[in-house]
Nucleic acid binder design. Structure first.
Lengths: 140, 140
DNA sequence: AACAAATTTGTAATGATTACAATTAATTTA
DNA sequence: TAAATTAATTGTAATCATTACAAATTTGTT
C-alpha cells in the first residue's frame, strides 16, 4: 500500500492526510503486529525525530473514531491497535505477550443478533500460550 | 450463597477464607454487576473501615490466579471482575458504561479449537448502546 | 505465652493516557 | 503575496489505575 493509496483511504474516512497521519497509518498497515502506542512511537521517532506521543494518541483516537482502525483491549495495562477492521479474533500469549490474529472459517462463528442492544463492535479474544512459548517451556 | 458456602468454595480453590476475602467474594457473587475495583471498595469500606485498596487488588489477583473469578478487559482504562466463570459474553454500553451479561443458546456459538495455541480463556465482547440509553437519546 | 507464618495496611512508585496551553504548519481571505 | 484564520503538532504537567514494598497486624503453632 503506497502513500497515494493511504492518502485516499484517509480522505475517504474524513481524515485530512497529513504527513504524520500517513506515516502512522503506514506503520499499522505494513506491520500488522497489533502494536501498543510505544511500539509505534519507537519506530516512527527514528524517521520523525520531532514526533510527540500526544500526536500519536490524538491520531490513533482519530482513526478509531473514524472507523479506520480497531481497538484491541486484550492486554491488561495498555491498548493495542489493528488496521484490519474486518471481523476476526485475537489470541494473546501470556508468556511473550504477542498478539496473533485468529481467522475463522466462514460458518465457524456466527455471533447472535442481540435484542435490546445496538451493537457497534464485536470482539473475540483468547488468552493462553503460543506454540513458540510452549516449545520453549519443554526445553527447561 | 451464605458465608459457610463461600468459605468452602474458597477452600476448594486453595484459598484460605479470611474475613476480607469472604466479604470480597460475597460482594462479587451477590451483586453480579461486573464491578471495577473502586465499586467494590466504595461498598466494602462501609462495613470494613480499615480495608485497603492494596488488599482488594491482592485478593482479586489471588481469585484470578485460582480461577475463582474471571477478568473482563472490555473497558479501556480499568479492569472489571466477574464471579461467574462460565462461558458467556459481555456487552458494554458506551454511554452509561454498564456491562451486561450476554447468554448464548447452546449451539449459538461454537468457538473453534485453535491449533498451535494452548487456550486458557475465551472472551466475547460487544460494545454499543444499551436500550435504556437509546431511549434516553430519543427524548432529546 | 512466644514464635513463626500469613494477611493486611499505608505510602510511594510506575506507567499509560489525557488535559491544556503554546507553537508550528496549512489554508483562506483581502 | 502578506496578513489572518484555522488546523495540526508539540511539550509539560496532571490524572488515575495498578503495583512495589516494607511495616504492622492477625492467625496459627509449639
Amino acid at each position: 500500500m503506497d502513500m497515494k493509496e493511504i492518502a485516499m483511504l484517509l480522505k475517504d474516512h474524513g481524515i485530512k492526510p497529513s504527513h504524520h497521519r500517513m506515516k502512522i497509518y503506514e506503520y499499522l498497515v505494513t506491520h500488522r503486529n497489533h502494536p501498543n502506542v510505544d511500539m509505534v512511537y519507537q519506530e516512527l521517532i527514528q524517521e520523525i525525530p520531532t514526533l510527540s506521543k500526544t500526536t500519536l494518541y490524538n491520531t490513533l483516537n482519530l482513526f478509531l473514531n473514524k472507523g479506520l482502525v480497531q481497538l484491541i483491549t486484550i492486554a491488561e495495562n495498555e491498548m493495542h491497535y489493528d488496521a484490519d477492521v474486518s471481523m476476526h479474533g485475537h489470541f494473546m500469549c501470556k508468556e511473550c505477550k504477542k498478539i496473533y490474529d485468529i481467522w475463522f472459517e466462514d460458518n465457524d462463528i456466527v455471533l447472535p443478533d442481540l435484542k435490546d442492544f445496538a451493537v457497534d463492535e464485536s470482539h473475540i479474544y483468547f488468552r493462553g500460550t503460543c506454540l513458540a512459548c510452549l516449545n520453549k517451556q519443554l526445553q527447561d
